[in-house]
Amino acid sequence: MSEGSSTIDVDDHARRFDPESRARALQSLLIEKELLSSDAVDRIVSTYEDEIGPLNGARVVARAWTDPEYRNRLLDDALGAIAELGVEVNEDTMAIEVLENTPTDHHLVVCTLCSCYPWAVLGLPPTWYKTPAYRSRAVKDPRELLREEFDLDLDDGIEIHVHDSTSELRYMVLPQRPPGTENLSEDDLVELVTRDAMIGVARLGE
């Protein structure tokens, strides 16, 4: 590390310039230093916009609803079961545990320290997930948080299990299959699964 960096006040610099100018400055410097390239930026962005997203998680959920053996494998070894559907998860970057909601148990995922999230199956997290408002309250007052902010009114008797993602082990909720969907195909079921249900701020069919 640079001795000289002790005199650099990054926060002061950040106060004086908007993040766009600072990001562009870094982009231009890193491209000049051959640490980044114009096409790499395009590829990185398209990966997160087009290839990774909540659809992957929805496919996992719909399969678990329709194939009890797959559900068992998913709860036992999530990375292996997810890979069966062709969803690529680099095991160096995260492990995944799938948490199954039941009529009496509800799981809720948060990262109080930053924004850790099972992005390989759900994409990048929504903005609200990253806010101090959500992060602070989810661990202390989850029932009221769900009621007031997400219109999810969980009976006091339903046990809420909050999972604070403090490591590279990431959590995804397996929601309950909504009633009245017995005749739907797996593809149709995929359409019913929302990102919010896989974070645990929604229950499907309620």
């Binding site: 993040p19 766009e20 990001a23 562009r24 870094l26 982009q27 890193l30 640490l35 980044l36 790499a40 930026v41 990185i44 962005v45 997160y48 916009e49 997203g53 909540p54 659809l55 929805a58 994409g123 990048l124 929504p126 903005t127 929302t194 990102r195 919010d196 929604a202």
Partner: peptide, 23 residues
């Protein structure tokens, strides 16, 4: 909350920032 609406970046500089993180 659905895949159709999935929109991870709202500004171009946010996309750039993610790339800076990767770099």
């Amino acid at each position: 909350s659905t895949d159709d609406e999935y929109d991870p970046f709202h500004e171009q500089w946010e996309e750039v920032t993610y790339s800076l993180f990767v770099a």
